[in-house]
Design a protein around this nucleic acid. Structure first.
Length: 892
DNA sequence: CAGTGAGCGAGCTTCCGCTTGACTT
């Protein structure tokens, strides 16, 4: 007989197994094992008729929750029950936080152990820590469990009462929740600010100066003792200088006049300031900061980051990746310090070991910070990691090592210069001692700020010096709207407000994109029309729930419940059934909200109204007392909608499409239109016999206004024949597809062989020779930016002669043969792999592929192939908050 | 796919947090 120990994850099970005496069996629960029913199909027949059953909480009977074992956990629960039969003791060793405690309690409820049962907790997986934990077991903490249950019920009540309201009033399948609705609201509020933003412009002078043959730059800052206006002096809503600011605002003419007046005058140094400063390294990674940095530095999404981190964790390279604690164990600090000494020397070591304090709201700190695993850290070079794994490990390693390095010391130098009545300023920075800069500098959402960490050298100057001015140029500036949220800045904001947990940051972003509340544009998250409509409704009728502080208030109550100071039932009862409770509120508002109004989006200074319809957003306005409606392109967001575009759409609707001219050979008219999939051109009219005239989308980045008749004719002639392939005699054509321009070798029954054109190729001018060259390139190497190359070529497959190669992927190296991919066998390195080794692996993979269950019970709601329109207008907007961009103007 | 913005109306959609698997380039 033995003791059964249950933890959450198989990896944790594997590691603690090594520290436990023999006779201990360790199994994983795989997270929560019971939950409220997720969908109608999970509700037991016995209660299906009850009014409350769709909530999964009997709100009339003391909020009694209805727990079920979800389908994917049934097998695990069964296995745990089996394991318990052969044990004479049960130890529950889940995390010591609210959710972990709850998992233990649910296990007790499900397994109903007849043998002695203990609750064991530990924060570090070391021999001593685990032995100590074993002798220090306790009971399951019922208060903590109750706090979790209260959290669970509250989230369910919010989500499952507000979502149905949205289905009735706005569109089916929409969702609302304590976390996602606040996240969406943040995006919407920022976009409203951007829409309300009015640009301001101002001018100044830039001087190139030199002293003792070294040159430096200087900016005009004062004129006749008055400060020159900068971006911060502008009111974002008017584009004018904020009232009461005593500043000089120069326009272009005035600046040119000043330039002329100051040219060839004498410059003198009025003073030099030197200000030393120090900088401390950033704290070690937690889930949120790791996601932010990986997004900024590696351009990984939160989800990708977590996938890669999980893999590193499973392979034993890093500690657990879902954590909100910045704590480092003593061993970790020692390991980091020894890395610093070995690689950078004693000088670079911080005098004292550095330990950080967690400061985000509601952190539960069941784990350590994210750091390289082990008593000694493997340097990135010592690992055989590849691709994203290698890059992420490098990031984690550097950040951790940097925490034990000395502060950086730098000096900021400001030189004040005078010429006539104009004051100029030069700023420089000298790094006196780089300290942790040697290992790691935190990234920034603002690309301009990255320059902050670079040295800017000035020649040595002192008061009374007279440097020579070699160039004086006027510079125009425009103020920029507040930056959109990126994944990184959204996660940062949510984390700061204590909204969401480490395990959910990535999925929150996924949810708001899946539900159609936001689109990813470059690295930014852009809210949709639906997001505007839903946010407006929630703000108007449920302001408390979408307030940033709602979660923090809830957390305080939950803390109270876990200490016994607050009673859970009155809290829930008041929240849901009270006079101003959620149920009451939803019932009264349900009758008040007019669906037509709720579906209408109020946008400033637009003549037409935008409404959410069955087929997506459309605009509606009146023309000669009759309503006119027109669809908006699918991926258009409120940000892109301008009065001109509305006019274009309505004109097209009222007067028919705009005619570009007539086809030179066919004589038919050619039109340009804006459709649901972006702008396109059309040859001929829609008639009875020709219901589908020839159409062609505009290539990416081409504006509607810039399309000429010639271009339209060319587009409509696609796919264009280039010639006959010398090997086969088959057609070689060039065309424009979903993924941009391509060449195709059409071998009839043999199939079509496609290649995308490269950046340097032009769809209209590409030569036949170049097309053949592209077709001759191997296909599998298309990859990202064409950089994908095989790590090792194993040879050709005996069956079909197709190549079998080893490639590098985000989950490590893998073997590829046609469409079959298989990871390298455990413990094997790229160099070791041979064709002989690969063939059986590929064969096995190919066979399991075929007989895999296809059911998966409509797992993800709608897995539509996300079609991207070819003609998306990519307006690359500058995203520097309140920053200004310089507009170079030529010296006259 | 290149226009629509209604309803005959069953039954369903939906939350947050804990986990991995199977998947892919």
């Amino acid at each position: 007989m033995s003791t059964l120990v249950i933890v959450e994850s198989p990896t944790k099970a594997k590691t603690i197994r090594n520290y436990l005496p023999s006779g201990y069996r360790v199994e994983a629960s795989m997270g929560h094992v019971r939950d409220l029913p997720r969908t109608a199909s999970e509700i037991p027949a016995a209660v299906k008729g009850e009014k409350w059953s769709s909530l999964g909480v009997n709100v009339q009977s003391d909020f009694e929750p209805l727990y079920v074992v979800p389908k994917d956990k049934k097998k695990i629960v069964k296995e745990l029950k089996e394991a318990l039969k052969n044990s004479d003791e049960l130890v529950l060793a889940t995390d010591e936080d609210r959710e972990g405690e709850s998992i233990s309690w649910h296990l007790l409820q499900l397994l109903k152990p007849k043998v002695p049962t203990k609750r064991m907790v530990f924060h570090e997986i070391t021999d001593e820590a685990i032995k100590a934990a074993l002798t220090n077991c306790r009971e399951v903490d019922q208060r903590l469990v109750r706090a979790q249950e209260t959290r669970r019920i509250l989230d369910r009540l919010v989500g499952y009462t507000l979502s149905p309201l949205l289905w009735k009033k706005i569109a089916p399948s929409l969702s609302a929740g304590r976390v996602q609705s606040v996240a969406v609201r943040l995006l919407v509020k920022r976009e409203r600010e951007r829409r309300a933003f009015r640009q301001g412009s101002y001018w100044d002078l830039k001087a190139a100066l030199s002293k003792d043959k070294s040159s430096f730059e200087s900016r005009l800052v004062t004129l006749a003792d008055k400060r020159l206006a900068t971006g911060n002096d502008f009111d974002e809503n008017t584009g004018q200088i904020i009232a009461g600011r005593d500043v000089v605002l120069l326009n272009e003419e005035e600046t040119l006049a000043l330039q002329a007046r100051l040219t060839d005058k004498t410059w003198s140094v009025a003073g030099v300031d030197e200000r030393p400063s120090t900088r401390k390294p950033a704290p070690p990674f937690i889930t949120s900061t790791l996601q932010q940095e990986a997004n900024r530095k590696l351009r990984l999404s939160a989800r990708e980051t977590m996938r890669v981190a999980q893999s590193l964790y499973e392979k034993g390279f890093i500690t657990y990746m879902r954590t909100d604690s910045v704590n480092l164990s003593q061993q970790a600090i020692a390991a980091a310090r020894s890395c610093v000494e070995d690689l950078y020397g004693k000088n670079y070591l911080s005098p004292e070991p550095r330990q950080y304090k967690t400061k985000s709201k509601g952190a539960q700190e069941a784990h350590e910070a994210i750091r390289p695993a082990g008593q000694t850290f493997r340097t990135p070079k010592e690992t055989d990691l590849q691709g994203a794994e290698s890059k992420l490990y490098d990031l984690i390693w550097k950040r951790t090592v940097a925490t034990q390095m000395a502060e950086a010391r730098q000096t900021h130098i400001t030189v004040h210069l005078e010429v006539e009545d104009a004051g100029f300023r030069s700023t420089g920075k000298r790094i006196d001692f780089p300290g942790f800069f040697r290992a790691y500098v935190e990234g920034s959402d603002d690309p301009d700020a990255a320059l902050d960490d670079q040295e800017v050298l000035l020649p040595s100057l002192k008061q009374g010096d007279t440097p020579e001015c070699t160039e004086l140029s006027p510079i125009g500036h425009e103020t920029q709207p507040p930056a959109r949220f990126t994944e990184a800045s959204l996660v940062k904001m949510l984390e700061k407000e204590g909204i969401g947990r480490p395990s959910t940051y990535a999925s929150v972003i996924g949810t708001i994109i899946d539900r159609g509340y936001a689109q990813r544009q470059a690295n930014a998250l852009v809210p949709t029309f639906t997001a505007f409509a839903v946010t407006a409704l929630l703000e108007q009728h449920f302001p408390d729930l979408v307030d940033l502080s709602f979660t923090a208030r809830m957390e305080r109550r939950l803390d109270g419940i876990s200490t016994g100071e607050v009673e859970w039932l009155p809290y829930l009862s008041d929240f849901y059934l009270g006079d101003e409770g959620l149920e009451t509120l939803v019932k009264t508002r349900q009758d008040q909200i007019d669906p037509g109004e709720a579906r209408t989006i109020d946008l400033d200074n637009l003549e037409a109204k935008v409404r959410i319809g069955r087929f997506g957003p459309y605009i509606e306005t009146e023309h000669e007392e009759k309503p006119v409606k027109a669809s908006l392109p699918k991926d258009m967001t409120p940000a892109d909608l301008t009065p001109e575009q509305i006019e274009q759409l309505l004109k097209q609707k009222l007067e028919g499409p705009e005619k570009l001219g007539f086809h030179p050979e066919k004589g038919e008219p050619i039109y340009i239109l804006l459709g649901a999939y972006g702008p396109y051109v059309q040859l001929g009219d829609v008639t009875e016999e020709n219901k589908k005239p020839k159409r062609a989308s505009l290539p990416k980045g081409v504006a509607m206004e810039s399309v000429t008749l010639d271009m339209a004719v060319e587009l409509l002639s696609l796919p264009r024949l280039l010639g006959q392939h010398p090997d086969t005699g088959c057609k070689v054509q060039v065309g424009l597809g979903r993924f941009g321009p391509y060449v195709v070798h059409d071998q009839g029954k043999e199939g079509k062989d496609y290649r995308s054109l490269k950046k340097e190729d032009n769809l209209f001018t590409i030569s036949f020779e170049r097309a053949l060259e592209l077709l001759a390139m191997p296909k599998g190497t298309r990859g990202r930016r064409g950089t994908k190359k095989a790590l090792k070529e194993l040879g050709s497959h005996p069956e079909d002669e197709a190549p079998v190669n080893v490639y590098d992927g985000p989950y490590g190296p893998y073997i590829k043969h046609n469409k079959t991919n298989v990871s390298l066998p455990e413990g094997k390195k790229v160099e070791d792999v041979t064709l002989e080794m690969a063939l059986p692996l590929l064969a096995e993979k190919a066979s399991t592929k075929g007989k895999k269950k296809t059911s998966r019970a409509k797992s993800t709601t709608k897995k539509k192939t996300t079609k991207k329109t070819t003609a998306k207008k990519t307006t690359t907007k500058k995203t520097a908050a309140k920053k200004t961009t310089a507009k170079k103007t030529t010296k006259s």
